[in-house]
Amino acid sequence: MGFERDALIAACAAHGRVARVVLAEVRGSAPREPGTAMLIWPEGQSGTVGGGTLEHELTRAARAALSGGGADRLSRHALGPDLGQCCGGHVLALTEIYDSARAEALPEDMIARGPGEMPLRVTRLLAQARNGTVAPRAQLVEGWMVEPVAHPTRQIWIWGAGHVGRALVSVLGPLPDVAITWVDTDMARFPGGNPPAGVTLLPASEPAALARYAPKAALHLIVTYSHALDLAVCDALLRHGFGFAGLIGSQTKKARFRKRLAEAGHGPDAFTRLTCPIGDPTLGKHPQQIALGVAVQVLHVEAQTQLGESPTKKDRA
């Protein structure tokens, strides 16, 4: 989790002045952790800090500040006594008002701001975070809010822009720290309009040729309109390497691909590295049902990777 600088810049460009509300400090039981943030403008918002009443009050106050020319402010909220929530904790929220000039002037690594001269503790913390001796995290230090800028840590490649590919982008795109590379044979295959934030469109007449440009640890979801394309991508990824690769299909398709990849020179264990079929067939075959099952599977794979474990046999089935 971190300060989503690019999203703030985009929101200011689209809506003018934007309020950013971040949980600066959390004590006791609370819906979300420090560093959780949301963006608010007069007609809408993005993100959530959790807790219905807390978010409602923070959103109302942020809109009042936007309309009245309000300044940045820290506010303390006792979730039980003040807001009637079941959580018994206390939250300190920082509300800041940004326009494009202020947003674009923010640093690209660590963002620290607060009243008066920067405290020595904050100076040291920034230096330690930048030289890698301390893992950066969102925190309030002597009245100064310090946050690392968010950068994608999960690279997901989606091969195919049909109904299932579009459903996957809609489900996986909003996840934090995700960058999606979306591949298909022609630009006309993608939906019209600008792609969602964090999604890069990559048209290519021969999609499999792009596999060699993917990060070695990337996750791949293969859902093209053509079995031949699917097979070519599988072949290319097995030769290139990957963190996870999942293929949409049936048990019949799985058996055929196993045989054809063996004929292409891959060893007997190569196909066990691919997950086929992806998702949870028990959820149904509607594209959104497939996407939901795949998203859960991807999150499980990510969790296992962070714990230093290998995906389970079930994940690779």
Rank of each mutant, 00 (worst) to 15 (best):
L125F: 12
H300E: 14
Q289T: 11
Q289F: 02
V164I: 15
N131T: 04
T181I: 07
G70M: 03
V146Y: 02
E55A: 09
L58C: 01
R137G: 08
R273E: 10
H90T: 12
T181C: 13
T185A: 08
V294R: 00
T224F: 02
P287E: 06
L79S: 08
P174L: 11
M1W: 00
R212P: 00
Y225H: 15
R32Q: 15
D235Y: 05
G68F: 04
G35A: 10
G246K: 02
D109H: 13
Q155D: 14
P195D: 07
A64T: 15
H300M: 14
L221V: 13
A93L: 00
L168D: 01
L83V: 13
P207M: 06
S226L: 04
P115I: 00
A61R: 09
G284A: 04
G162P: 03
R212A: 12
G51E: 01
E309L: 15
G162W: 10
H227Y: 11
A204T: 02
R124L: 15
A255I: 03
G192C: 06
W159N: 07
P107C: 08
G143T: 10
V183R: 02
L261K: 12
I40K: 07
Y98R: 03
L175K: 07
A14V: 00
T95L: 11
W159D: 06
P277I: 04
A11P: 05
S310D: 12
N194W: 12
A209I: 11
Q85S: 06
G284F: 04
L39G: 03
A232W: 01
A214G: 06
T123A: 13
G52E: 00
H300V: 09
A61I: 02
M1E: 02
